[in-house]
Design a protein around this nucleic acid. Structure first.
Length: 583
RNA sequence: CGGGGUAUAGCGCAGUCUGGUAGCGCACCUGUUUUGGGAACAGGGGGCCGUAGGUUCGAAUCCUGCUACCCCGACCA
């Protein structure tokens, strides 16, 4: 490609709303352009990267035996009503009507459509397992789109759905997808971790996320420094130890104006891990269709832990969950905010949950349900028997690994680029999608589903690898593999050598950009940094010595004889590409 | 939806408090000189000052409504 014929509108300054490096460079480098909140144009350069990611994904999905299909973006409401999600999915689902007042939505995910696709056409266990995928545009009316393509409302996703006649078969395909995903992200040249995940409102039980590690990641992940345990902080658990102190008698203490755990712990000279805090939440039940019937729950958790709202939401079967306001707390608990405790709490029709961190706790400090008073030496179950005890805490850096029970957990940030689920029968049962088993009996399909954010994968490559001048692309997904820069096009010798090199590289299937613009070299260097091609060939000063200058985007440099340059470059490209491509 | 903020040329901003008919840098066009990390000089094009209404002789500027966008929390590939 000749730069003069190409379209790369680079910007000297980043738009003020670009927050993270990937967004700044994607906009400045002329990869994407925003047209509305969370909605982007993909310019030629951006599309090239996206296509390269897609091709890797496609190749590996095909290799794993999945079949490509294409489903519509516009989905009739009927399908979503059948699965029940029409009523449970919130405002992320963009709904609208056609001229005949029929209802539709823009598909944010395609379980319903794929189930409909196979229903009545896959009739026998002999046709299973079946794994179908598509690479297609999704729309989710996100509450808060952010970070460019990283969290867009309209985005490209690879989604695959598998159908099985046994758990064993599902386990097998799940494992194959796990492997395919690992190959995909390896081939994209990315550092990633696979973590246990919460399955969110997609449903199902087992699920894992593929996380690109990057400081700007929106997710926190915890992993053990001693074993293989790794989990999203939404899911991560930790081992809590039982204390072995002697249980002392309850003791009411005056704690004037001390409300927060910090204040109370400091005032009473105890560690915050020896206190129990109370949180009051309001929520809507997942089956509630009125969106007006707010329920309340009081949660008790050890003072040094943060509550994990995802876990709480699951425990309550809530579709909306938020902290109650002070006036609501006062009304629901009849206790002053900051002094709520389990002993003597006067509540009706309110669920009370306890995090398992307080079970083994001895002689803890709790609220006395009375302004300016706390109670010392609370012991479970001696002083209060919680009916619902479950894991509701957010595991933190330094906690003990729940799996090997000896390592410590470390916290790191990550970008979720892939997610694999064992769905089970959730959708097939709701939509009565069945086949006949070996006994001729009707059975509902067992399903799995597997997603990859294509744009997000591309952006996370920038997030993971860039400098102050631009992206440093892995060659597998770089918009160009080689960029040729003549120092001065007016110099006939430079021009002709560049032209020759350009056509030789093209003939060797190298993805090359020839910067044939009448620009000063500084401009070309800066644009080249934004394009981020791994190899930059400069023809200029050293031409007199018969040398071309190779400046690699990762900072390395070398001079190479013009004679044999094409072969040399082809070998380097091949070498760079071979890293990670076969594993 | 809650809280905070912004809207002036393609991008980044000043001007608004104190009303007088719109400006700077980058980008763009022409020419000359330059040519190894975003050149210099000269000339030039481009703005219903988000939108609707109001106050005023006069509004980017003051008042009111609306809209869009951004930041902080719940969503997720």
């Amino acid at each position: 490609m000749r730069y003069s014929k190409y379209y790369i509108p680079t910007l000297r300054e980043a738009p003020s709303d670009a927050e993270v490096p990937s967004q700044q460079f994607a906009v400045r480098g002329g990869y994407i352009k925003k047209i509305a909140t969370g909605i982007y144009d993909c310019l030629p350069l951006g599309l090239k990267v996206i296509r390269k990611v897609e091709n890797i994904v496609r190749q590996e999905m095909n290799r794993a035996g999945a079949l490509e299909v294409s489903m519509p973006t516009v989905v009739p409401a009927e399908l979503w009503q059948k699965s029940g999600r029409w009523y449970m999915y919130g405002k992320e689902l963009l709904r609208f009507k056609d001229r005949a007042e029929r209802e539709y939505c823009l598909g944010p995910t395609h379980e319903e459509v794929i189930v409909d696709m196979v229903t009545n056409s896959v009739k026998s266990y002999k046709q299973l397992p079946l794994n179908l995928y598509q690479i297609q545009t999704k729309f989710r009316d996100e509450i808060r789109p952010r970070f460019g393509l990283m969290r867009a409302r309209e985005f490209t996703m690879k989604d695959a759905y598998s159908f099985h006649d046994s758990q064993l078969s599902l386990d097998q395909t799940y494992l194959e997808m796990h492997e395919a995903y690992s190959r995909i992200f390896n081939r994209c040249g990315l550092d990633f971790r696979v973590v246990k995940a919460d399955s969110g409102n997609i449903g199902g039980n087992a699920s894992q996320e593929f996380m690109i590690t990057a400081d700007t990641g929106e997710d926190a992940i915890l992993f053990c420094n001693d074993c293989d345990y790794a989990a999203n902080s939404e899911k991560a658990t930790t081992l809590v130890l039982n204390e072995s102190e002697e249980e002392l008698a309850l003791l009411e203490v005056h704690t004037p104006e001390k409300k927060s755990i910090e204040e109370v712990a400091q005032f009473l000279q105890v560690d915050s891990a020896k206190t129990i805090k109370a949180l009051v939440y309001k929520y809507l039940d997942i089956k509630d269709q009125t969106d007006a019937d707010w329920l309340y729950a009081v949660v008790f958790i050890r003072g040094d832990y943060e509550l994990n709202e995802v876990k709480l939401g699951n425990a309550l079967s809530a579709k909306v969950l938020m902290l109650a306001q002070d006036d609501e707390i006062a009304r629901v608990t009849k206790a002053p905010v900051g002094y709520i405790g389990p002993v003597g709490l006067d509540i009706k029709n309110v669920r009370v949950l306890a995090d398992d961190s307080i079970v083994g706790l001895k002689n803890a400090v709790i609220g006395a349900n009375m302004t300016d008073y706390h109670i010392k030496n609370f012991n479970h179950p001696r002083d209060f028997q919680f009916s619902e005890i479950t894991d509701l805490k957010t595991a933190k850096h330094g906690d003990i690994c729940p799996e090997c029970q000896k390592g410590n957990l470390s916290k790191e940030r990550g970008i979720e680029v892939g997610h694999i689920f064992k769905l089970g029968k959730k959708y097939s049962a709701a939509m009565q999608a069945t086949y006949l088993d070996t006994d001729g009996k009707e059975q509902v399909f067992i399903m799995g589903c597997y997603g990859i954010g294509i744009g997000r994968t591309a952006m996370s490559a920038i997030e993971q690898s860039h400098d102050e001048r631009g992206p440093i692309w892995p060659i597998q997904i770089a918009p160009f593999e080689v960029i040729i820069i003549p120092a001065n096009l007016e110099v006939e010798e430079q021009r002709s050598i560049c032209e020759q090199l350009y056509s030789d590289l093209l003939a060797n299937n190298i993805d090359v950009l020839f910067d044939d613009r009448k620009e000063r070299i500084g401009v070309k260097f800066n644009d080249a940094d934004l394009i981020g091609a791994p190899i930059r060939v400069v023809l200029g000063k050293k031409l007199a010595e018969g040398l071309a200058e190779l400046n690699y985007r990762n900072g390395q440099k070398e001079d190479v004889k013009i004679a044999g340059l094409t072969t040399y470059l082809c070998n380097i490209v091949k070498e760079l590409k071979s890293v990670n491509s076969e594993s």
